[in-house]
Amino acid sequence: MSTLSIRQLVATLLFLHWAALWAVGTQAEIVDDIYKARLAVDGRDTRSLSAARKAGLAEVLIKASGDPQAPLSPAAAKALDGAQAYLLGYSYEEEEQGALLLRLEYDEQAVQQLLRESGLRLWTANRPLVLTWLVISDEKGRRFASVDAAPQANDVLRDSFKRRGVPLQIPLYDLSDAAAISPGEAWRQSSSALIDASRRYRGAELLAGRVARLSDGSWVGDWRYLDNGRWRSRSSTADSLQAFTDAGAELVAATLVEQYGVNLTADTDERYRLTLRGVRSFEDYTVLQQVLGSLEAVRSVVPESLLGDQVSLRVEAETDLQQLARIIELDKRFVPLPLEPGQNGLSYEWIR
Rank of each mutant, 00 (worst) to 15 (best):
D284M: 00
A249N: 09
Q343V: 11
P341I: 05
G217A: 05
L21I: 07
L49A: 01
T26H: 02
G342I: 07
R7M: 11
E258P: 01
V291T: 13
R230S: 13
A145K: 06
D267M: 12
L122W: 01
L4I: 14
V111E: 08
P183D: 10
Y173T: 06
V130G: 01
V24M: 02
R116S: 11
G261I: 02
D246T: 13
A254G: 15
A238V: 04
T319D: 08
Q27T: 10
E59S: 15
A243I: 05
P151V: 05
R314N: 08
L256E: 12
L264M: 04
G203P: 09
W350A: 02
L129K: 12
G217M: 06
E93F: 02
Y260Q: 01
D196M: 12
V31H: 05
D222Y: 02
I328Y: 00
A149T: 13
R163Q: 13
V311I: 13
A266H: 03
S176H: 12
K63Y: 09
H17S: 14
S347F: 01
L306S: 14
A186G: 14
R277S: 13
R121V: 05
G89V: 03
T245P: 08
Q323W: 01
L21H: 11
F161N: 10
E318H: 04
R299W: 00
G43V: 12
E105K: 12
W350V: 03
A79W: 06
L206N: 08
Q259G: 01
A317W: 00
D174Q: 06
K162V: 10
P336C: 05
P171A: 08
L256A: 04
I181L: 14
D269R: 08
Q289M: 10
L339T: 03
L114H: 04
L306H: 09
E316G: 06
A55V: 08
V220E: 15
V111G: 09
E329C: 01
I195V: 15
I181G: 05
S236Y: 09
R271Y: 03
W133L: 06
